[in-house]
């Protein structure tokens, strides 16, 4: 067991946790924040994606004990705090960017983190540029988030809209 303090969506929580507890299980089981989803629990599907200190991360691969003193944002904390949607959330609704919705919280957090990440991707021609987020760039940068409904086309459109 270990004592940790984590700030989640702006609220500080001091907790005693089993060292084996993942950040994902801490969020879902201890804090009742069930927006973040458990898909594969191996870092392969992206359904658990949250922002840790502003960087998108797989919450299933982070032990909660390693997050002591860190700042976590989940899908519940993406909006403006007054019930207003994050522009990505509004765009996902507008563009019908989901079907069952299971991967959506992870897609949203991943996209939110992705939009702040500098530098090229594997599909960028010129490594020295921060390329515009074309559909090809968005697809490559979002490859850590799977969607079994296959809503990819509209997910890309939704993210593209926010970028513009």
């Amino acid at each position: 067991m270990a004592e940790i303090t984590v700030r989640v969506n702006g609220t500080e929580h001091s907790l005693i946790v089993d060292t084996r507890l993942s950040l994902l299980d801490l969020l879902r089981e201890r804090l009742g924040l069930t927006g973040s989803k458990k898909g594969c629990d191996h870092g392969q599907c992206g359904a658990c994606t949250v922002l840790i200190d502003g960087r998108r991360s797989n919450a299933c691969l982070a032990l909660a004990v390693t997050c002591d003193g860190l700042d976590v944002t989940t899908v519940e904390g993406l909006g403006d705090g007054d019930g207003g949607l994050h522009p990505l959330q509004a765009a996902f609704i507008e563009h019908d960017a989901f079907q069952c919705g299971y991967c959506t919280p992870g897609q949203l957090c991943s996209a939110a983190g992705m939009l702040t990440e500098p530098g090229p991707s594997a599909v960028t021609e010129d490594l020295m540029e921060d390329p515009p987020l074309t559909p090809a760039e968005i697809r490559e940068r979002m490859s850590g988030n799977l969607c079994r409904c296959g809503a990819y086309v509209n997910i890309v459109t939704a993210i593209e809209g926010v970028r513009r």
Binding site: A122, M128, S143
Partner: peptide, 23 residues
């Protein structure tokens, strides 16, 4: 890295996902 070791940048970007590379 991008300027002087582009092959290393390419190899890193070819691996894993954005989330995994962040961690």
């Amino acid at each position: 890295v991008r300027e002087r070791y582009p092959m290393l940048a390419r190899a890193l970007l070819a691996g894993a996902s954005g989330q995994v590379r962040n961690m």
